[in-house]
Design a protein around this nucleic acid. Sequence first.
DNA 1: TTGTATGCGTTATCAT
DNA 2: ATGATAACGCATACAA
Lengths: 336, 336
Amino acid sequence: MAKGKKENRVHIEDVAKRAGVAISSVSRVLTGHKAVSESMRNKVEKAALDLGYQPDHLAQSLRRGSTKTIGFMIRDIMNPFFSIIAQSCEIELRKSHYSMILINSAGSESTEKSNFGVLKSRRVDGIISSLVSESSFTKNSLNSFTAPIVLLDREISGLTTSSVLCDHTSGVFDATKYLLSQGHKRIAFISGPENIYVTRNRLDGYEKAYESLNLKPPKDLIRLKDFSEKFAKEETHKLFKMSNPPTAILAGGIGSSGGVLHGLKELKIDLNQVKFIALDEWPFFDLLSPGLSSVHRDPETMGKYAAKLMLELINGGKPKSILIPTTFKNRDRASK
Amino acid sequence: MAKGKKENRVHIEDVAKRAGVAISSVSRVLTGHKAVSESMRNKVEKAALDLGYQPDHLAQSLRRGSTKTIGFMIRDIMNPFFSIIAQSCEIELRKSHYSMILINSAGSESTEKSNFGVLKSRRVDGIISSLVSESSFTKNSLNSFTAPIVLLDREISGLTTSSVLCDHTSGVFDATKYLLSQGHKRIAFISGPENIYVTRNRLDGYEKAYESLNLKPPKDLIRLKDFSEKFAKEETHKLFKMSNPPTAILAGGIGSSGGVLHGLKELKIDLNQVKFIALDEWPFFDLLSPGLSSVHRDPETMGKYAAKLMLELINGGKPKSILIPTTFKNRDRASK
DNA sequence: TTGTATGCGTTATCAT
DNA sequence: ATGATAACGCATACAA
């Protein structure tokens, strides 16, 4: 029966014909409407199964006004930290039959803005996003959006979105305090831009640790700009050109950590000479020698909660923030 | 004017009214139809701009029969290798105004199958996928799909899809040959399931290298099952319980590499004692000491080509395969 | 060149 | 409980 692999899509009408009922009845059965007789339900379900009918999601969306799609807008999906969030988020959303459109901002504010346009046009039911910036520019984009928004590790004042925030402060505080207890006074701090939540929050922990011992944090060792490997590497070089260089380094993010580690390698500085603590876990950190300590946060949990918060908002819930703990993972051999 | 942030979506009708023309004229202008007068174009464009009109992608899709959406179905997005492919793919697709639905198979064949259903129902214009398996089960899912398909590093006989394949053979051949030239005879090979392209292809290089020197590959050192860290770690332990253990190891994939490295660490075997070569790059490999050698392939290029092949298919092009080279990156200090 | 009218595949409102 | 029909927002065949 050379059927010719043509457009063999089966529509609701086909099901109706086969079952010998009206289109509307098919729809009712398949959408789980209460007022349908047993026999009708059986007839329709059989016909639908026989034909392998799958409703056209497009038409459903147009009619229902909901796409069952969430826009996942991310700064940098190449960063495993984010891709793990994306994955766990997708797994959670899928349970409620939501799909995820992945859209990348590549660290650019203007791309981010146009992305909002794309997602709006595609009528996503919500956006989960790790924003590039927390500027008023972005704020406007967010405000013009009617669908629910869940922010990842970002906080924008005067905006009513849900957000998944990490308690960087406590983890960084512990890490810094540990270094101070080991006799380090000159601890460098390298991280992303100062105007975003994560950096402010981390810096807070760093400074509080110093202050808890009545010490002043060494401002000359704080280097904030972006999360790129390039920046961190350059700053590492600069730091060790100082007359009074650091004896320990805290670096935020995968890129920054890589930059520092590569920088140190170029400078032929061993990790035994300078203590390094990364502010984000990296799968193989425990293989580096000596074991690198880090401040850990769990991206899988973050993604899961992001999805949950989104679903709550969609179901009419109030916006809320959830705080994910961070923990200082001490892999220092000396401490054991 | 407290407008109340209500559904303020602007429709084509609003634009038509403001411009004082018919709906169809607005549509024509906005879709770039040829036969429109200068004045009409100006009127409409102004009205559209004033109102900030954005066509409803949903309605367009339903009408046009094309969603401008590609399903990106991946085995494991947590693997940075795949997330980089996803990212570069999205960047390329976006240039042609395509969006990407990310959907995860989590290594499960049945999930993979249901994913095909989801994507079909969402009427994606195509699927780019790194399949879990190359079984006939999957083959059926693929065959029932009318939209174009691009496979990543998978090859299914008797199926006319485009695919981005990596030339693992040559890279692994070089790596194995190098090890042999260094006097290693007992080289272990740990990788994923034998029934997928990538494993067959790698194994091929491994065996050919032995054969090129008229040697028989040591079958007892070949361990194939899956890409999990668990499997690789267990096999590593087993290998070194042998009376005649390997002196070098090749491991395929991020998970496998991690498993071997962790296994060796547990066994307190130094990387100076056993030579390890990874069959996939990992960002921090060069920081491990001594520098780990690896067989490198470029995920960014892969993603880009996957997108290009997809767009070609959509535009009516014939299916084709493209071969991405792999290179043996020797980071052995001794060799320099 | 421009306007009118139909249809994309559903769901939901209205009768019956 | 079931069937006919309007509506979702747009693109296009056809008429003017």
